Structure formats: C-alpha cells, structure tokens
Computed example of a mutant assay.
Amino acid sequence: MTNETPCPADAVTRMEPEIAFMVRGLEGIYRRRKYPMERAHYLVLMNLLEGPLASGALAARLSLDQSTITRQIAAMEKRGLVEKRANPKDGRGVVIAATPEGEARYTEMRALRLERLSEMLSDWPEADRARFAELITRFNSALMASEGGQVLKGR
C-alpha cells in the first residue's frame, strides 16, 4: 500500500489558503494600480498577438462563455484595441485581431507588470525565480485543464 493519501498537513492543505490569499492580494493590487487597460483586455490581447482568432476560439482559450467574450470584444472595439476582420478561411465569418493601438497598450501594460514583478522578486535567487515560473506554469495548465479550457498563452 502506498502512502499517497493526503493528510491535513500535506502540501495541498498548506497551499489552499496561500492561493486564496494570493488571489485576493493580486485583486487588491490591481484595483490600486493605474494600468492602461483592464486585466481581461490584457489577456484577450495576449492571445490575439499570436494572430487573429474567432471569438469562439478565444472564449475557449480563456475558459469564458461566448456572451462574456462578445461583451469584452465590443468594449475593446470601442477603445480601438481590437477589430473584426473577415475570416481568411471562408470569408463568411469574422476573426478578432489586435489593432496597432491594442498592441501598444498591451506592450505598455506588460512592461509595467514585468517591472512590478521584477521588483517583488528582486531578492530571490535566479534559480528560485526559474523554479517558481516552472511551477506556476504547471499550476495554470492544471487549472485550465480542470475547467475544460485550453492553456493560456503567455508572452
């Protein structure tokens, strides 16, 4: 018999409140920062910078329902961050593409986020930062898989 049955002191039990605290902390920090766009728009653009996507494919990548992604796309169109184009595969449907303004705002926000994260982890040894990056990537992959979504693309 293996000893794989979780016990109250296992790592998952220790992780759960830390993840809850991390999510809450990130939400609070996000509200106080003056970022150039909403977090949801940042994630949409992150995926669109790889190339135009149909809204259904974008919704699947982000584990969102179609109505949510439709509202986000409409708001982003009004801000000039994305545009609809004829689907090059059949010409009947549309794909969503980042505009030059969307790319610029994404780049600006990414630079701010990278700067902040670099400051937060400045006293971590590079090996710890690399290991954390590996583990958080694995965690996000497991999270998306557990929700039936695809792995979010990162830049």
Rank of each mutant, 00 (worst) to 15 (best):
M1I: 07
N3Y: 13
E4F: 15
P8M: 01
A11T: 10
R14P: 04
M15A: 14
P17Q: 02
I19N: 07
F21E: 12
V23P: 05
V23E: 08
G25P: 11
L26K: 10
G28K: 15
I29R: 15
I29A: 11
Y30P: 02
R31W: 00
R31G: 01
R33H: 10
R33E: 10
P36F: 04
P36K: 09
M37H: 14
E38R: 15
R39Q: 11
A40Y: 03
A40V: 07
H41K: 09
L43P: 06
L45F: 04
N47L: 04
N47A: 06
E50D: 13
E50Q: 13
P52N: 06
P52F: 04
P52S: 13
S55H: 02
S55Y: 01
L58W: 01
L62F: 08
D65I: 00
S67D: 03
T68I: 13
A74G: 04
A75I: 01
A75G: 13
E77W: 00
R79Q: 14
E83S: 12
K84I: 04
N87I: 03
K89L: 08
K89Q: 08
K89G: 03
K89T: 04
G91I: 00
R92Q: 11
R92H: 12
G93I: 01
A98T: 04
A98R: 10
G102P: 12
G102V: 05
G102H: 06
R105N: 02
Y106D: 03
T107W: 10
E108P: 12
R110Y: 03
L112Q: 15
L112F: 14
E115A: 12
R116T: 13
E119R: 15
S122L: 10
D123C: 10
D123F: 14
W124V: 06
W124H: 11
W124F: 14
A127N: 10
R129G: 04
A133P: 03
T137S: 10
R138W: 08
R138T: 07
R138M: 08
N140I: 00
N140M: 09
N140T: 03
L143K: 14
M144L: 04
M144I: 00
G148P: 06
L152D: 02
R155M: 08
